[in-house]
Design a protein around this nucleic acid. Structure first.
Length: 401
RNA sequence: GGAGAGUUGGCUGAGCGGUCAAAAGCAGCAGACUGUAAAUCUGCCGGGCCACGCCCUACGGAGGUUCGAAUCCUCCACUCUCCA
């Protein structure tokens, strides 16, 4: 690849690239670049939203650069204020380390295990000490910190901002100083933090890093950014069937963004596919199934992808019970037991009230038969087995012993 | 340091001393319609009880006034505003 081709490849899908000329001159030196990406160890599960940036990291790896997966175990104690309306709760040391382990286990589904370097920023931030922190804070001004939209908005809305939150961008910027990063990647919401890194590097007499941001992926609701805390995410550790179902539930419109950010298709190929769907020559559901399979192939296997599709067809298109149903064993009894209690006991509803509602609303089937009486009872003598379906997707086989 | 405003269910946000398990919106769940899509419509949306009624927990925390408090009083915690 020529340098210009490399630039195009690395910039593919990016929102900001500051400065492109800097990246070019860095590449021209012919030495592997140090590419830093920070991950906050607050979310124990890597989801599709994270993979957007990770995919970009892989691009750098493919071109022979040194990619550092930085786990913000120190900054995690601060809690990134980005996009937050309220102060985040601080994590304990134990929680952070446990989360970090989960990260390590999962990142290699996307990144090259051989060359990915995993670091923890407590390594240098912890060593900084109070004095170092104060010195670091001296390099930035309040006005500049308040330029940041999140802070300004909270400030103007008279919402609390704790002082330690102001340190977050500085700490993150200092990571770049410590690692002498050539490039830092992040979501567009990270732009401010990444730029602070540039400023700080200049302050410390280093060449400023290149900042490259990727679009944020909306979650299943199609509106909010995909995040663990909002529960609108697809985790890469999830079962193939779960992933398939979740992908199918996104809107047709959103599907294209997923195609662009979560597959290796080029923008041109996605555009072409979209044109086929819009002209009616390709059914949107088929396009979405292909998307779901592509994603499952990445995190599981081609076989798992095919199996997930077959299972999906079986359950939802043909409305049959899944091939594999979780079996729950409950204690048998001589007296008939209320169905609602059995549903709760089997873990298909959060509470008896909840189960009662589901039954009343016609969302419960016992052995393929809809039950709509909340007083319905089942014979629970030993050896009895029932197939319960609650809502559209919750199944369980209950056996009494 | 001084003066004032506020803290309500996952979120936003109403709330007269009784009729408040608490308006409304969002989110969520179920049903209808579908392509388990989206949009739309309908219902539900603290928990317990083989109950259509009763009980428990809940309106920042702890006390108090009252037959009765989310609503009044006191103290504590937290947040915001203005002044210094």
């Amino acid at each position: 690849m020529t340098v210009d081709e490399q630039l195009e490849y690395l910039g593919k899908g990016a929102v900001d690239l500051i400065e492109k000329a800097d990246l070019k001159s860095k590449i021209l030196r012919g030495r592997p670049l140090t590419v830093k990406v920070g991950f906050d160890p607050t979310a124990p599960d890597i989801h599709l939203g994270h993979t957007v940036v990770m995919r970009k990291m892989r691009h750098f790896q493919q071109l022979g650069h040194r990619v550092i997966f930085l786990i913000g175990d120190f900054t995690g104690m601060i809690g990134d204020p980005t996009g937050k309306k309220a102060t985040r709760p601080a994590l304990t040391r134990e929680e952070i380390l446990a989360n970090a382990e989960t990260y390590k286990r999962q990142v290699h589904k996307i990144l090259d295990p051989e060359t990915t370097e995993i670091r923890f920023n407590s390594e240098w931030l912890g060593a900084l000490g109070a004095e170092g922190m104060v010195r670091l804070a001296a390099k930035y001004t309040l006005a500049r910190i308040l330029e940041r939209d999140d802070f300004r908005r909270r400030f103007e809305a008279h919402q609390p901002i704790s002082l330690h939150e102001l340190l977050y961008p500085l700490a993150q910027g200092y990571d770049s100083v410590a690692l002498k990063a050539d490039v830092e990647l992040g979501g567009t919401d990270q732009l401010f933090n990444l730029l602070v890194g540039r400023d700080l590097m200049r302050e410390y007499g280093l060449e400023p890093q290149v900042v490259l941001t990727m679009p944020l992926l909306e979650g299943l609701d199609g509106v909010e950014k995909m995040s663990k805390s909002l529960g609108n995410y697809i985790g890469i550790d999830e079962q193939p069937g779960e992933i398939f179902g979740k992908v199918m539930s996104i809107s047709d419109e959103m599907m294209w963004k997923y195609y662009l950010l979560c597959t290796d298709l080029t923008p041109g190929e996605v555009k072409e596919l979209r044109a086929h769907v819009e002209s009616g020559s390709h059914h949107p559901m088929d396009a979405k199934k292909d998307l779901a399979k592509a994603i499952i192939r990445d995190f599981h296997s081609p076989e798992a992808a095919e199996a997930a599709e077959a299972e999906f067809r079986r359950i939802f298109s043909e409305k049959q019970a899944p091939t594999e149903i979780e079996e729950t064993t409950l204690p048998a009894g001589d007296e008939p037991q209320l169905l609602v209690k059995i549903i709760t006991a089997a873990g298909l509803a959060a509470s008896n009230k909840d189960a009662q509602r589901l039954v009343a609303q016609g969302g419960v089937l016992v052995d393929e038969v809809k039950i709509d009486s909340t007083r319905h009872t089942l014979d629970v003598s030993a050896g009895k087995i029932y197939l319960l379906k609650v809502g559209k997707r919750r199944f369980a086989r209950v056996r009494f012993e």
